[in-house]
Design a protein around this nucleic acid. Structure first.
Lengths: 225, 225, 225, 225
DNA sequence: TATGAATGAGTGTTCATTCAT
DNA sequence: TATGAATGAACACTCATTCAT
């Protein structure tokens, strides 16, 4: 009976939407099932027909949010081969989704440690996956950049060496810094004041790319010492 | 009776230290006064001799943490005039304190919305102050750069072209991006794997400074219009 | 429509069987309708087509169990006239049914006070009836013993007096002790270790009958003083 | 501060007394903490100052009841050597305590399976201990009886053999039957109608002892076949 | 200074039951 | 004949906080 199933799914989605809002406003711990009951207009007991626990609810929100952002990313990424462009796509995708689904993304971002055991593990896996996609692109970008220099010096075959040689920004730190930049927006972004996702992506992309491109780094770094 | 006062102060500090740890581990909402009682070895009722509420406790922690980091910053900053150097000092100070007082900084950073009314306002004021210090330095940096460009002008055409596509960076976004980079470390920094504060400050400083340095940006931006 | 009725009855019986098991395992209070739903494979709401409440369910189980054991008893009893034999039949019937329907009997025995008002009264009536059957047989047995002695020995006044004086075993206590012996088995009987119903009935019958036969009581009692 | 401790202990005892009553009336599962709160006149939360859970409460009641009855038994038993007398002491002690502490004993007897894990194990251990004391006495009694016959036939040295020879009531069944008789009284004893502990012990003792004494059994049993 | 004792309000969750379909 | 969806009331338990001592 697809009629029924879709009804259930629609109702569940509604609840998830309300829950996302409530978790966003009060935090996961701070939000009570009674808050949720009020927000959804459904009885306390009624909620439990749709999921077995508050934790499961958070899990569903986080999972859905993550899977959606990853799916969109993969789609957009499939069209581009240039590393710089791919990084820009990553940033654009992230910020666009973040600002369009601010509440869900904040819940995903802020309620990082609320889940336990199996649920936590599953979401952590998605996170790792997402992180690795980004890491891959950034490494590609750095390798190309690095290779330019390294080709001349002839030697290092491995990507990791080429990067170490520069004694410089590691891909891990670069990627995590980028995530920081982007995720932090939930603490400050004001749609009435601040630029939209496109402009923000542009600026953060500029900072990040120029930041790790660092053609003049050698000189600068040397000068500092 | 200074004897008494200092004893009181010492005891309070101990409690704050334990509370910081507990809030760090369980979150403000997730931590119970009983957890605190256990952590301090003091009776539940005894704690209330030192502060009137759980919220006040969080306030004291956040205020103390903020005031300390600001004080240290001012001291270090007083020695330097060069904008780049001042930005590097800011970053270094922030990360150094962050990693040395990870738990307090996480509580400060993560429990942003737990405080209400007067307490919230006070901490927000400190935050604004801290933000403005950073903003001031960054603006100075950007202004000089801007001037520099105008003076030298003319030059690098090929570079500017590669940048053309890019939009301009506002100081607000720059600063908030920097804060994002830095504050985000509480979610990932692993002392056994990751670099220490100095190296981290170096890398983040490189990314940020190169990222906003972009002498040729103006031209590119102009080209877009 | 007998077709329908028999289907209904069959289904009800299945449910009763599962419910018996669940009540046996978790107790009446401890068992939830959801447990039942799970055990029967029927939906929660579906169960209510067959009985109007959880209490009614318990009532049906208890009533059915009691009526069955009483019916079997009456049939077996109809064949025997000798009081001792009749007592042995009672015990045999009880234990046989108890061990063959351990779960139902435990529910009957253990969930004595769960029913209220009309249901309680009905089951209590069955219980009283069952008790009175047993009481009747035991009284018969004791009367014959007593009469037999008095008639034959004609003389022995002192004995009969000694019995009165001693406030000897009353039929009520005898019967209730017998029920205790028998009903208690649900707390200890282990089919892998313990004897089967027949052997158990033999032993308990021996204890009970010799225990109330007490031809040598006077002497023993006197000796005790 | 013995003042304080004794106060705590006294209060705890009061609560245990009320809880015993409530568990007796409604059963463990059927009794709610609110019922207890009402019965004690203490707030719901206040109760938790004295024990950490409803289960612990049941445990405390069961443990205390069992330990008390065992302690009293050991004391009385220490004075007697004659097996029959010892059995009578056991019965007398059990029934006396049972009727004087009917509610506690019912809770002990009826709520057999409510406890879990460690608590259950502890109470089970006490129960086993109590059972074994009884078993020991009964075996002694049967051995002496049996020896009388066996001495003449010369052989069997071991207790177990002497009993097997009679192909009759096993000590285990005897003891468990006795427990059944005694424990069952919580389902029927009415102080206004029924005899007191002393008279009851007399009667049950008579039934049990004559029941297992069975000098004439061999003849009777043979006759039956 | 510090605590034992206590509380009202609230927590997440489960209960037996209902009713439109 | 049976179910999906929903509910009010209750569940055991914890919360931050208080107050006499």
């Amino acid at each position: 009976m697809p009629e029924r199933d879709s009804r259930y799914a629609r109702r569940l989605e509604e609840i998830l939407a309300h829950a996302t809002e409530v978790f966003n406003d009060k935090g996961y711990e701070g939000a009570s099932m009674r808050d949720l009951s009020r927000a959804t207009g459904m009885s306390l007991a009624g909620l439990y027909y749709y999921f077995e626990s508050k934790e499961k609810l958070l899990y569903l929100i986080q999972k859905h949010t993550f899977e959606t952002i990853i799916a969109r990313l993969r789609e957009r990424l499939s069209a581009a081969r240039d590393p710089e462009q791919r990084i820009r796509i990553f940033i654009q995708n992230h910020l666009e989704y973040f600002l369009a689904n601010q509440k869900g993304m904040k819940v995903l971002t802020h309620e990082d440690e609320a889940l336990k055991d199996k649920y936590a593990e599953e979401v952590r896996a998605l996170k790792r996956e997402y992180y690795r996609v980004c890491l891959g692109i950034v490494e590609e970008f750095l390798k190309l950049r690095g290779n330019g220099r390294l080709v001349r010096s002839g030697a290092a075959k491995q990507r990791s060496e080429s990067i170490e040689v520069r004694g410089d920004i590691t891909p891990r730190i670069a990627v995590l810094s980028l995530f920081g930049m982007m995720n932090w927006i939930y603490t400050w972004h004001n749609p009435r004041i601040d630029a939209d996702a496109g402009a923000l992506a542009q600026q953060m992309g500029d900072i990040f790319l120029d930041g790790i491109r660092n053609q003049q780094r050698a000189a600068g770094s040397a000068a500092r010492k």
